[in-house]
Design a protein around this nucleic acid. Structure first.
Length: 284
DNA sequence: CCACGGCCTGATTC
DNA sequence: AGAATCAGGCCGT
């Protein structure tokens, strides 16, 4: 099935921008699982083409558009955040990159795992958990696995999670799973809360601090003003916008919301891409 | 509030 | 080769 898109959209940079960890590229096709469905998707000149299973494409199209945030007016976003030469350049290089609207549960676990880790390892751990604990299904000759439900991770327990390679994060994941499974943490309710309130609520979860909370809010709960600050982002922002000083998390966050406004999260995503590129170039 | 050290583990570096 | 070092932080002190 095809979907026409009349706004800037770049599938590759969107799926490979380090927001989501379970998409795999095979030639021009990307393979992944959303809402328990296998998805194959590729970019076309005027939009995207995709296949889904088991939910039929006619039904899945809306879900996929929602996931890819095709409802965001990217031109308007650019007008809001294209404020200096650095932003202008990184927008030019990654034009069409979008934030995703991921499933909050999977996103929460992914970013709890991200603490003191790196993208390849987060990916392999997420994949590992899905292979061992998720539902398995076949689609067009490939094997797919859903991400395990909270109840499943509760049953597996901390020791079981450690055995899957989560390290000291196993305890956080086990506790977070418990909170979601028993209904003490209702992730979808955070979507309708104001940013500040949702941010604090998420930080009650073990293993979730300022940065992880901002990631989950930005990548799955529609808080586009969230501005996650990792060690690189802090260094970069300090260097570029604070005259070589190392500002605190709160300081950077306040600055970002003031400077970039309600789309600060988009600005963060573009700056982050920019610095990843720079460090990749550095390694040759 | 802010600063600091410890933490699982796998990949990369020296 | 085997030991540091580092990685998209968090937590307790």
């Amino acid at each position: 099935m095809q979907i026409n898109i009349d706004q800037p959209f770049d599938l590759a940079s969107t799926l490979e921008s380090g927001q989501a960890f379970r998409w795999r590229r095979n030639g021009e096709w990307y393979h992944g699982v959303i809402y328990g469905n296998a998805i194959e998707v590729r970019q076309h000149l005027f939009g995207i083409e995709f296949r889904s299973h088991p939910t039929p494409e006619e039904e899945m199209g809306k879900t996929l558009c929602d996931y890819l945030r095709l409802d965001d007016n990217l031109e308007e976003v650019y007008r809001a955040i294209d404020l200096d030469e650095r932003m202008h350049e990184t927008i030019r290089r990654h034009r069409g990159m979008r934030l995703l609207r991921q499933e909050p549960w999977e996103c929460l676990i992914a970013f709890i795992l991200s603490a003191n880790s790196n993208i390849p390892r987060i990916s392999s751990t997420m994949e590992n958990m899905s292979r061992r604990l998720g539902r398995q299904f076949n689609f067009r000759g490939l094997l797919y696995h859903s991400f395990p439900a909270p109840e499943v991770l509760v049953a597996v327990g901390e020791k079981g999670l450690r055995a899957l390679g989560l390290g000291y994060r196993a305890s956080y994941v086990a506790q977070a799973s418990q909170l979601v499974a028993e209904g003490a943490l209702r992730l979808d309710e955070l979507r309708s809360m104001p940013y500040e309130e949702a941010h604090e609520a998420l930080m009650e979860v073990p293993g979730v601090g300022e940065k992880v909370s901002d990631c989950v809010l930005l990548f799955s709960l529609d808080k586009l003003e969230a501005f996650p600050i990792d060690r690189w982002m802090r260094r970069a922002v300090g260097e570029w916008y604070f005259k070589e000083r190392q500002p605190s998390y709160r300081e950077v966050r306040a600055w970002a919301r003031e400077y970039f406004g309600p789309y600060a999260g988009y600005a963060q995503q573009y700056l982050f891409q920019g610095r990843r590129e720079a460090s990749n170039r550095g390694r040759g």
